[in-house]
Design a protein around this nucleic acid. Structure first.
Lengths: 332, 332
DNA sequence: TCATTTTGCGTAAACGTTTACGCAACTATA
DNA sequence: TATAGTTGCGTAAACGTTTACGCAAAATGA
């Protein structure tokens, strides 16, 4: 039915082996025959059967990507970066959204493993035990992106500690002393923990003792932002809040405005992520931008260059991008 | 290295054939041996080599999904719907973001074809000629989702004509007579054409002659929304605008507010798509919601049941979801 | 009890590719 | 011209699975 290298070989008066060598540019062959083979392949409309190739080589160039179903929009950015690099380095990406249902997760990952993927990228995933077990069992290279799991798996991420310092420094410089952290109280365990610590340390560095009540909310959802304002009530006990994800910050902003507060006068907001969402609000949100595309790129390229040791941590840059959501107390 | 059915066969004192039959629940075997085989497979940590299976069966259960890189967020919804159904019916999804660069597109799709995918879903893709050529050449089932390409490819989509009627009827009922259509002037050729026609027809049905100048903008971007307000200037010559995608509507809203207009008093907006984005604005956008998850579901299930003929068109439901972005002239 | 059917499983070929090995023909070197 | 090295390519096995076919044993029926 479909065209195989055997067909090409017949037409060219060669053996399949030679055709394979030529098409893969691997081994010895003459330029002349190569030209002929390429022409014939083209004219017959040949497509390599990658399954057969994978089977023969016992290794595929497929990388599985696990994306949480409730994937915040930064996942798209990471994938974009990966896709670009995959194209350059000739890898294939098997992107899979994973569910919260554990049974589904397992089945999904099993099918990845069946494909003999040679690496699995986990985007912002807190592997629950069963899944994690499975992944460790299979011997496949794991990479955790934009999250930190344990010290067995290499990590590509922003420096969450540094980010918190950058944000607190920025707010401090604008005159803020009462700063809340919304959305890192529990979830995404390790990242949240690092952020909390960074936040506390950064405050301490300015001589501010943090108020534990002001670290509030743990889900990266819009609702968390809404609820936070509700929770603290007006007038708010702080002048600035850090939203631990863009969607949280939008929630904060809307809830504050709905409650009659003016942003940034009554509440300043700095958002963590810096996706397009921060540009769609009024006022535009000041944000710390993570380089998600770079994460995607680095994941693949460092994998390619085999520079990923077990406990590697690669940090990508973060920077403050100014919007209009932070009040400057110096100008009053 | 890895465990194969041969290993299982040895340990069970069977032939690989029997193991295969058992694991795939296909053919004859005794319940007793089946139990043994499953146990051994479990204990050895066996993973099927899907490449080998695909090769042997000459057909894979992999469906390729082509998603435009600048994928508006409804793509996520469609994929979610597909993923759910894929899980039920035991298919695998190979999601691929495709670039605007034609050479990359070709390479990407080639690699899909190499995987012997048995169908390709195209999400909101206007296939440019070269890609289209390639896809037609390969004999693979194509399905166009949320877009209409030509009458050779089955379509799963909202009824764009009906949607426009629903929107115009809603606006008319609220007392609007001057209604603009932003974002369907040229692009997404067929869909845009249908929307324009639906819009014009719906107006005509109310005895309104449309103003060709009020069909403006062709890209599904935030910028289109911003530019539209700029283009028409204030005060706007119409009382309501239909944003042909959520992101356009957000642009309209922000630009209008930035220009000092009050939504909905000075401008009413109805958005097309109804993704989460419409809930994040103030005021919340009135929108016509498309059932994207259902599109994803139907694509896969109708493929599975082989009910997709060449020129099939399957419409999913659309409905108006009320927000606060439409002024009601009846209440004044 | 014998004939027939059913059951459980093994044999072997096939899927399309890659690659180690080897050989003949050619090229370079002295 | 003899020798050694190189080049181009074919042979054949291997990857792990599936499945048509067939056979012996067991089950069924009379």
């Amino acid at each position: 039915m479909a065209i195989t290298i055997k067909d090409i070989a017949n037409k060219a008066g060669l053996s399949p082996a030679s055709v394979s060598r030529i098409l893969n540019n691997h081994g010895r062959f003459s330029a002349e025959t190569a030209k002929k083979v390429h022409e014939i392949a083209e004219s017959l409309g040949y497509f390599k059967n990658q399954s057969a190739a994978d089977l023969s080589q016992k290794q595929s160039r497929v990388v599985g990507v696990l994306v949480p179903v409730a994937h915040t929009n930064f996942a798209d950015e990471i994938i974009k970066g990966m896709q670009h690099t995959a194209y350059e380095l000739n890898y294939e990406l098997l992107i899979t959204f994973i569910d919260t249902d554990e049974k589904k997760q397992i089945q999904t990952v099993q099918s990845l493993l069946s494909r003999k993927v040679f690496a699995i990228f986990m985007l912002a995933i807190d592997a629950p035990t069963a899944l994690f077990e499975l992944l460790n069992h299979a011997n496949v290279q794991l990479v955790s992106i934009s999250n930190q799991l344990n010290n067995k798996i290499p990590i590509i991420s922003s420096n969450n500690d540094l980010m918190m310092h950058q944000i607190v420094d920025h707010l401090y410089q604008k005159g803020h002393r009462k700063i809340a952290l919304i959305g890192s109280s529990e979830r995404y365990p390790i990242v949240a923990k690092i952020r909390r610590k960074g936040y506390i340390d950064a405050l301490a560095a300015k001589g501010i003792t943090y108020n534990p009540d002001w670290i509030w909310g743990f889900q990266n959802t819009y609702q968390t932002g809404l609820d936070a304002i509700q929770h603290f009530g007006t007038p708010l006990p702080f002048t600035a809040a850090i939203g631990s994800a863009d969607i949280i910050s939008v929630g904060l902003l809307n809830a504050a405005q709905d409650a009659g507060l003016v942003v940034p006068n009554d509440l300043s907001i700095v958002s963590v992520d810096g996706t397009e969402l921060t540009q769609l609000t009024r006022p535009i949100l000041t944000t710390i931008e993570q380089d998600f595309q770079m994460m995607g790129h680095l994941a693949l390229s460092s994998l390619h260059e085999k520079t990923l040791t077990e406990n590697a941590i690669i940090y990508t840059d973060t920077k403050i991008v100014l919007g209009d959501s932070v009040r400057d107390f110096n100008n009053y």
